[in-house]
Design a protein around this nucleic acid. Sequence first.
DNA 1: GCCCTGCCATACACAGGTGTATGGTGATCC
DNA 2: GGATCACCATACACCTGTGTATGGCAGGGC
Lengths: 206, 206
Amino acid sequence: MVSLQHRAKPTPARAAPKAPAPATPLDASAWVEAAFDLLAEGGIDAVRVDPLAKRLGVTRGSFYWHFKDRDALHKAMLKQWRKAATYQVGDRIEREAADAGEKLRRTLALPYSGPKAKRAAAIEMAIRFWARRDEEAAHAVQLIDHQRLLYYAKLFAERGHAPDAARRRAYLFYAALMSEAIIVTDEQTDIRHELADLVIGTRDEG
Amino acid sequence: MVSLQHRAKPTPARAAPKAPAPATPLDASAWVEAAFDLLAEGGIDAVRVDPLAKRLGVTRGSFYWHFKDRDALHKAMLKQWRKAATYQVGDRIEREAADAGEKLRRTLALPYSGPKAKRAAAIEMAIRFWARRDEEAAHAVQLIDHQRLLYYAKLFAERGHAPDAARRRAYLFYAALMSEAIIVTDEQTDIRHELADLVIGTRDEG
DNA sequence: GCCCTGCCATACACAGGTGTATGGTGATCC
DNA sequence: GGATCACCATACACCTGTGTATGGCAGGGC
């Protein structure tokens, strides 16, 4: 068994992460997806070519085919994140809920549980920490935050708040949403679901 | 000039960071302090012995005198953080403000400006991201959060809120406080100082 | 004046990561 | 059925970091 085949076995080597079975060839988006896993686990500095290649079951040769260098991957990740984050804002919920109050309430109820949400939260944190030293990352974060705050403010405005009050409410709402990725409560001191009324408000006070 | 002195020049090599002139010998706390700088800049993985030594103007030989290994430094950092964070909660403000409302208001007004606050915020974020994969870091964060939430809840209780409502308010207050380290507003869309009334509340709403 | 101890430098072996150069596959087109 | 191309493996030179072993300087006790 000198094993000089093109690759030992076509798929099972890459079956570890979650790739169903895309024949054999990898595209750039597969690298980006795996890169987000590493980002969530160890921050932007953990997004390294070598571990990435090992996780995908290939060698660095593949990476440097799809990307010029590590920085190119980082840029691709930012682009992908902006796209996904933009998409996420009021798309699914926008269809599933009718009035603004319900939309806000369901947005606040979304996260925290499930490994998928934890991954997303970790990515958010990692990118925001990354943004402290990277210009482009900072720019992306700023755009996303602005966009989300605008959207939430719109919802609060629909609920009858004056523009200024709506913007304040939106910020507080966003802060409460984000805090779930940061503040650690001891599991059964779970206040989150009781928080909706306080943040969203049952009556106006703008 | 074969230069076989003990160290080329006693102090100026270490004058870069901010050490005034502590003669020559370094103690463990000096390493920990510098480690927090690296932590704030690049996360826990950036806290490496070599860059740390270079920043302090010494070699790794010094480090391995004061610490067994890298992990020992990490533990020392956690210990120091817990100590400082514990100290910080309602010490300065506890003396400078009289009633609970004023204490909360001044707490919310504290951060964000100044490089010292930015450093502290970065450290908070870095430790919380670190806590996602490190047991001890997670434990430290949990303790600190619990302690802070208790303190804030006490203040809200002093303002006449019922225990449950006080805990909810405390969480929201803490979330608003933390959010300043995460959410990026475009500098002149600064809502923070207008946020106090909304978070702290000018009237009760149980 | 010696010895011991606190503090640090130096050198070494090793691991892991980057980027480049180059070669080797399978599939495809024609 | 030979040429071409997309995709990946392999090998190389280089750099940065870890931990260990050891040596060396300084200063204080005595």
